[in-house]
């Protein structure tokens, strides 16, 4: 990763670590109950198969 981009990432992490004045975020207030992917994943087995396939893609790419 080039140093300029790494510097930008570091800056964002510093910004995120700063206390926020007047802005309180409650987590996950607008989570959708479903999306396209969750309609195709019905069971733990489906999810495990899907995640295994993703891992295989990552492994093949490395």
């Amino acid at each position: 990763m080039n140093s300029h981009v790494q510097g930008k990432i570091d800056d964002i992490k510093k910004l995120a670590a700063r206390p926020k004045a007047g802005h309180v975020v409650s987590s996950g207030t607008k989570r959708q109950s479903t999306d396209g992917l969750s309609m195709a994943i019905r069971t733990q087995k489906d999810a495990d198969t899907f995640m295994t396939e993703l891992k295989a893609i990552r492994k093949k790419a490395s």
């Binding site: 987590s27 996950g28 607008k30 999306d35 992917l37 994943i41 995640m51």
Partner: peptide, 24 residues
């Protein structure tokens, strides 16, 4: 934020747009 399906714990969704409320 985490994908809404609890079966996919390492998957996150990205959304972008004008804000609504404190986190939507």
């Amino acid at each position: 934020e985490p994908h809404p399906d609890p079966l996919l714990p390492n998957v996150y969704n990205l959304a972008i747009g004008p804000p609504i409320g404190d986190s939507a």
